[in-house]
Design a protein around this nucleic acid. Structure first.
Length: 267
DNA sequence: CATGGGTCCTGAGTGC
DNA sequence: TGCACTCAGGACCCAT
C-alpha cells in the first residue's frame, strides 16, 4: 500500500515528468473517482499548467498555474506517465491528457482512490498531523504518544496524529524499536519514544532508498517495482524467522489490520 | 474530544 | 476445473 516513501517516490518522478505540461482533457470510466464531480473537476483543471508536484501525508498535490488538485492512491492506486499511443494499463480509470500527447494515468483496482479539486477537499489538508521527515520532532512525538492509551501501532497509523505512516512501516518501525504493537502509547517512556521516533525515520529513509515497497500493487510511474519488500523486517512475514533472534514472526489483528511482530524481540 | 465499528470495492485465497 | 464464499485494507462517516 502506498505510504509516505511510495508516494514521495512517485512525487519525485512526477516532478521530472509532468511539470510544465498543460492539461487538455480528462477521461474517466469511473466518474465517482473525480471529486466533487467529474464535470466540476474537469472545469477546474482543463487548460491549466502543472507548476509543481508536492506531497502532504499520503496525498500528492498537483499545483497548477491556478489552484491545485490532489490524488490519493489509497490501497491499490498507481500513477503512470505514458504516451497516448502506449498500450492500455490495467485498471486505468482516469487519464489526464496533456498537450503534446503525454498522459498521466490513474490505475486503481479497488476504486478507493480518488482525484479531488480544492473545492472537494474542504480543509482536510490542514487536519493531518506533522510530517515525520519534516516537522515532527522527538518532543512532539512523545507528547502525541502520552495523550492516549490506544495501542501504539494504532496511534502511529492515525493520520490526524502523524502523517504518512501506514501498515508496512508502522510494523517495521516497531520491530526496529523493539516495541510490541499493542503497547498502550502512554506507557512508553521518553527513552523508548525517542527510539521509536528514530526508527520511523530509519524505515522511511530505507523505503525511499529502495523506491518503495511493491509487495502488492504499488508501482512507480513507468511501471517499475520498488524493492523495499525485499527488506521487510516483519511486515507480511508470518511464520518466517526473525532476522535478529530466529524466532517465528507472528501475526495478529489489531484494529482490523494485519499486525506483524517478533514475540521475542518485541515484548 | 476520544474511541470504535461500519463501509466502500474487487482480486486473491480457501473449501468443496 | 470451477463455483461460492470470505477476507484484506486507508480513511471517512457516524454513534457512543
Amino acid at each position: 500500500m502506498p505510504e509516505l516513501p511510495e508516494v514521495e517516490t512517485i512525487r519525485r518522478q512526477l516532478e521530472k515528468e509532468i511539470v510544465g505540461e498543460t492539461i487538455v482533457a480528462v477521461w474517466s470510466d469511473r466518474p465517482k473517482m473525480l471529486r466533487p464531480s467529474a464535470e466540476r473537476f474537469l472545469k477546474g483543471v482543463k487548460g491549466r499548467k502543472v507548476r509543481e508536484v508536492s506531497r502532504r501525508a499520503k496525498l500528492l498535490i498537483f499545483e497548477l498555474d491556478e489552484g491545485y488538485f490532489v490524488c490519493h492512491l489509497r490501497l491499490s492506486g498507481r500513477l503512470f506517465v505514458r504516451q497516448k499511443d502506449d498500450e492500455a494499463d490495467d485498471y486505468a480509470h482516469v487519464i489526464l491528457k496533456f498537450k503534446g500527447g503525454q498522459e498521466l494515468r490513474f490505475s486503481e483496482m479497488r476504486l478507493f482512490g480518488y482525484l479531488a479539486d480544492q473545492e472537494a477537499l474542504g480543509g482536510i489538508l490542514s487536519k493531518y498531523g506533522p510530517e515525520p521527515l519534516d516537522d515532527l520532532t522527538a518532543d512532539k512525538f512523545y507528547s502525541i504518544l502520552r495523550k492516549t492509551s490506544r495501542p501504539v501501532k494504532i496511534v502511529l497509523m492515525d493520520q490526524h496524529k502523524i502523517a504518512g505512516i501506514g501498515n508496512i512501516y508502522a510494523n517495521d518501525a516497531l520491530f526496529l524499536a523493539k516495541i510490541h504493537p499493542q503497547t498502550p502509547a502512554d506507557k512508553l517512556t521518553r527513552g523508548r519514544s525517542d527510539i521509536l521516533f528514530t526508527a520511523i525515520e530509519q524505515v522511511f529513509k530505507e523505503g525511499l532508498k529502495y523506491g518503495g515497497a511493491s509487495d502488492q500493487w504499488y508501482l512507480q510511474v513507468h511501471g517499475e517495482e520498488g524493492s523495499y519488500q525485499d527488506y521487510f523486517k516483519v511486515y507480511g512475514r508470518t511464520g518466517q524467522r526473525c532476522d535478529v533472534c530466529g524466532t517465528e514472526i507472528e501475526r495478529v489483528a489489531l484494529g482490523g489490520r494485519g499486525t506483524f511482530f517478533c514475540p521475542e524481540c518485541q515484548k
